[in-house]
Amino acid sequence: MSPLGWDTAADLEKPPAEIPSPGEVDVPEGLRAEIEAHMANYPDRRSAALPALAAAQREHGWCSPQAIAQVAAVMRVTPAYLESVASFYDMLETEPVGRHSVYVCTNISCSLRGADALLADFQRAVDGDPEVNVRAFECLGACDIAPMASVDGVYVGPLSSQDIPALLDDVRAGRAVLPERQLARRLVADPHANSTEFPQHPAQGAAHGGANLELPTEDPATARGRREPR
């Protein structure tokens, strides 16, 4: 999509963008089926706008005008309605971006632990790689592994700049990113939560008790271990 915005006039040669008439827009069958399934979940079909746009973004890489027109054709709404929705939400891309996303949390808790420098290093590391979309993101809800990033939807942290090359290698190779640092493997911090020592879960690499909590080495706030149980 041409980067529309404040400075762009409407193209008077174009027709008005109304609800696409049936058959006007070709929609991939899988996408159509997925959107229709979402629409069936709600009393009002418009409720499916977010899941439908997310599906179209997976199909097209971003919410391109073509992607939006396809959703509009299936949902029977105007493309402007969807564009307005898409532009409101951070995870829906209204400009072309790389297929892989790296959201680096730079909100307070992460930035107190060096997220801004991490983001800058990330951006330097992917400079010129059109496939990887590195962007700052607001609080991702993982301040316990600060500083952290969501890599194609997978939370990893704590991260330091030294982790970046390995992480990007994993991304480009299509491997699980930094498996040891994934949030999925982290145990709760509360020492009282788990009354028993559970057998090691196959997915849980680290020892029980939050020992996998690594803070960036350059951060003087680094602290390891956990307090003694009360």
Binding site: P16, A80, Y81
Partner: peptide
């Protein structure tokens, strides 16, 4: 959106960046 229900004119983006626009540069006709 609520009177003529043509839903061609919308707000894009959000917060202090919000602006009134149409889809992909189409005119509001």
């Amino acid at each position: 959106q609520e009177i003529s229900e043509d839903y061609q004119l919308v707000l894009l983006d959000r917060g202090a960046h919000s602006y009134v626009a149409t889809f992909d540069g189409h005119p509001y006709v």
